[in-house]
Amino acid sequence: MKFKGKYILLSMVMLVLGYLIAFSYQLTNEGSKGSISAEKWNKEYESRQLLVEQEEKNLELGEELHKKQQSVQKLEENLKKDKQASSGMVEEIEELRMYVGEIGVKGEGVQITLEDSSYVPADENANNYIVHESHIFKVINELLISGASAVSINGQRISADSYIYCNGPVVTVDGNQFPAPFVISAIGDPDTMLAAFTISGGISDQLVYDNIVVKSEKKSEITMKPMLQGERAS
């Protein structure tokens, strides 16, 4: 019985010892698990911090990109305006060169022919029945006012500084003499120019009243060569 009691006591000691060992292992294992979880949490926190920092940098870069895009857009708009201005200047220069006769021009227009009267009464002054520079000036001014872009007299291109004067039956244009009839050609809208010229009480009627023979007609194409340097008025 003593041996059996010792056996029971030994069993209880072993049981308690096993329990203590198991409990210690469990505590150690849980502590180890807690340590790994904390490490993972730290890594996750660092990753989140890096992500936040990267998002902030992306936001800053996005704002900078937006500013750059706005600057590029402004530059493109300025370049477009400069290009349009340059194009407009080129067109204006070409138009001015056309007006002064430096370049040839072709287009539709009108042709006004002025002739001396074929009948002069015996008791009248013949000078009152011929074309004078004042008559030609009236026609040219009316054509220019109604939109003519180029004008010529008997093929002689005229410019803003051209001079015209009458010497008897002959009219001199920039040093070149032309006898009647005087053919004044103008490039532009033929309907507008012809309507302005033939309006009731207008230039055409005034010329007829001055005993001038007037003929006006539309032309589908009129060609004018550029003026040579020697042909321009000095």
Score class of each variant (00 low, 15 high):
16 V>K: 14
228 L>M: 08
31 G>A: 14
112 I>P: 02
172 T>P: 06
145 I>W: 10
158 I>D: 05
217 E>P: 08
40 K>Y: 07
220 S>C: 05
36 I>P: 05
22 A>H: 11
188 G>C: 10
160 A>C: 00
231 E>N: 10
33 K>I: 13
163 Y>T: 00
135 H>S: 12
193 M>W: 06
88 G>M: 08
191 D>W: 03
11 S>H: 13
89 M>D: 14
166 C>R: 13
98 M>H: 01
115 E>Q: 10
212 I>A: 03
61 L>N: 12
152 S>W: 03
173 V>K: 01
75 L>S: 08
9 L>D: 11
231 E>K: 09
169 P>Q: 11
102 E>W: 12
8 I>Q: 12
189 D>T: 01
167 N>P: 06
107 G>D: 01
228 L>I: 00
179 P>W: 05
53 E>T: 08
128 N>M: 04
138 K>A: 07
137 F>N: 14
110 V>W: 09
89 M>C: 05
58 N>T: 00
112 I>E: 01
155 G>W: 06
67 K>M: 11
20 L>Y: 08
4 K>D: 15
45 Y>D: 12
70 Q>T: 04
51 L>N: 15
34 G>H: 11
187 I>S: 05
30 E>G: 03
158 I>H: 07
52 V>M: 00
131 V>I: 06
92 E>W: 06
38 A>W: 04
187 I>P: 04
221 E>D: 13
86 S>G: 09
38 A>Q: 10
38 A>R: 11
134 S>D: 08
39 E>K: 14
113 T>C: 08
78 N>P: 00
182 F>R: 03
197 F>H: 06
168 G>E: 01
44 E>G: 09
148 A>R: 03
3 F>I: 15
73 Q>D: 15
95 E>W: 09
93 I>S: 12
8 I>V: 15
205 D>V: 06
6 K>W: 15
145 I>E: 15
6 K>E: 15
127 N>M: 02
225 K>M: 08
141 N>W: 00
213 V>Y: 03
22 A>N: 09
55 E>H: 00
147 G>F: 04
91 E>C: 09
185 S>Y: 06
97 R>T: 01
147 G>W: 05
87 S>L: 14
226 P>E: 04
37 S>K: 10
62 G>E: 04
41 W>Q: 11
186 A>I: 03
138 K>Y: 01
95 E>G: 11
167 N>Y: 13
119 Y>Q: 02
164 I>G: 02
40 K>L: 11
185 S>L: 12
114 L>K: 04
232 R>H: 15
200 S>H: 08
78 N>I: 09
130 I>L: 10
71 S>R: 13
190 P>L: 03
205 D>M: 07
114 L>M: 07
124 E>R: 01
41 W>M: 14
158 I>L: 10
225 K>C: 01
182 F>M: 04
173 V>C: 10
69 Q>S: 14
232 R>K: 15
51 L>R: 13
169 P>D: 10
186 A>N: 05
30 E>N: 13
153 I>P: 02
35 S>C: 07
214 V>D: 02
38 A>C: 04
100 V>R: 06
19 Y>W: 12
218 K>Y: 06
172 T>L: 10
20 L>T: 03
107 G>Y: 02
148 A>W: 00
133 E>C: 01
73 Q>M: 13
230 G>N: 14
228 L>G: 12
214 V>G: 02
81 K>S: 12
164 I>R: 00
206 Q>G: 12
52 V>H: 00
122 A>V: 13
98 M>C: 09
189 D>P: 05
212 I>G: 02
184 I>A: 07
